[in-house]
Amino acid sequence: MTAKETLSDTPPSPVGAGLLAKASGQSASLLNEPPHSRASPLPQGVSGPTLDFAGVSLTLGRTTILDNVTFQVQPGHVHALVGPNGGGKSSLIKTLLGQMPHQGQLSLHWPGQPGTIGYVPQALEFDRGLPMTVDDFMAAMCQRRPAFLGLSKHYANAIGEALERVGMQDKRKRRMGALSGGERQRVLLAQGLIPAPQLLVLDEPMSALDEAGIQVFERLLGDWRAAGITVLWIEHDLEAVKRLADRVTGLNRRVLFDATPQQALTPERLLSLFSTHPRSAV
C-alpha cells in the first residue's frame, strides 16, 4: 500500500474495506496492518491524511444521490459535512466505506506510511436482551480474540483508557441493553479510539448525547485536533459546527459551499442548502 490510496468505481480498496470492517464490528485497522500495532498510540507530531473527493457521483436507478461532489479535507482539520436529510451525506460516507458503487475518485494522501482509520456510526442497533456488557462489546469491536473469552491483556489497558476518556469506566460491567442512548453513544466513541486513528469518520456522533456527553465529545474533538488527527464529521447541530469545525462543506446532492464556518453558515447559504431543490451555490 502506498502513501496515496484511491477509491474509484473499481472494487473497494483496503481503505474502504477497513472502515467497513469497523462498522460491522470487526477489526478497525486496515486489513494489512500488523496485529502488534493495533493498540499503539498515535505518533506525536504525525498529521492525519488529506482526503480528496474528486467528481464523486452516485446514481441509484433514476435517482441522482450525489452529483459531481468535489472538495478536500485538510490534514489535521475538523471538517464538518452538513445538509438536509436525504441530501447524500450518509451516502458519501458509504462510498468511503466501500459500500456504494460510484463514479469519480476518493483519495487518501498520507504524510508517510498509511495509518489507521476509525469510524463512529450514528447509532447502534442490537438486541437489547443480549447479555453483553460494555467490556464484552469493546472486546468484540477491538480484538481478534472472541469476546466470550474476555479481554485480551494486549487490549485491556487501551480499552480502559478509552472508556475513561468518555466517562464510562465505572459502567464497564453494565449490560449494553441497560445503558441509555447517550451512554451507548459514548461507548461507540470509545471504540473509535482503538486503535489510535489518524483519520476519524463520525456520523452524527452528538445525536443521542446528553449535555454531559456533549462536553465529553467536545473535549475529544479538541484532543483529536491537537494530535493532528483528520476528522470528517457529519453533524446536524449547526451551532456546534460553527464553534468546533475548521471547515464546513454544505451538501445537498452536490456541494453548495465549502468554506470556514463563519463564511459557510450564513442565512443565505443555509436557505439554499436546505431548500428542496437548491438552485446554485452561493
Score class of each variant (00 low, 15 high):
D9R: 12
D9P: 06
V15Y: 13
A23F: 04
S27F: 00
A28G: 15
L31V: 11
N32F: 07
H36S: 11
S37I: 08
A39R: 01
S40W: 12
P43N: 13
P43T: 06
G48E: 06
P49I: 07
P49W: 05
D52Q: 09
F53S: 02
A54S: 14
G55R: 00
G61E: 10
R62W: 07
T63W: 12
T64F: 02
I65D: 02
T70W: 01
P75M: 07
H77I: 02
V78S: 08
L81P: 07
L81C: 12
V82E: 05
G88E: 06
S90R: 01
L92Q: 00
P101M: 09
P101C: 01
H102G: 05
H102R: 11
Q103M: 04
Q105N: 09
S107L: 06
L108C: 06
H109K: 04
W110L: 09
P111H: 00
P111G: 09
P111F: 00
G112P: 06
T116N: 10
Q122L: 12
E125K: 08
P131Y: 04
M132S: 00
D136Y: 07
F137K: 02
M138R: 03
A140P: 03
C142E: 00
R145A: 13
P146T: 06
L149P: 11
L149E: 15
K153P: 14
K153H: 14
K153W: 13
H154L: 10
A158V: 04
G160E: 13
E161T: 14
A162R: 03
L163D: 05
R165I: 07
M168A: 08
Q169A: 14
K171L: 13
R174W: 10
V187N: 08
V187G: 03
L189Q: 12
P195I: 02
P195H: 01
V201E: 02
L209W: 02
L209D: 04
E211F: 14
G213E: 05
V216W: 03
E218F: 03
G222E: 11
D223L: 03
A227L: 11
T230S: 12
T230V: 04
V231M: 06
E235P: 07
H236N: 11
L238R: 05
L244R: 11
R247S: 13
V248P: 09
G250P: 11
N252Q: 03
R254Y: 08
V255A: 10
L256D: 10
A259V: 09
T260G: 09
Q263L: 13
F274C: 09
S275V: 03
T276C: 05
P278Q: 09
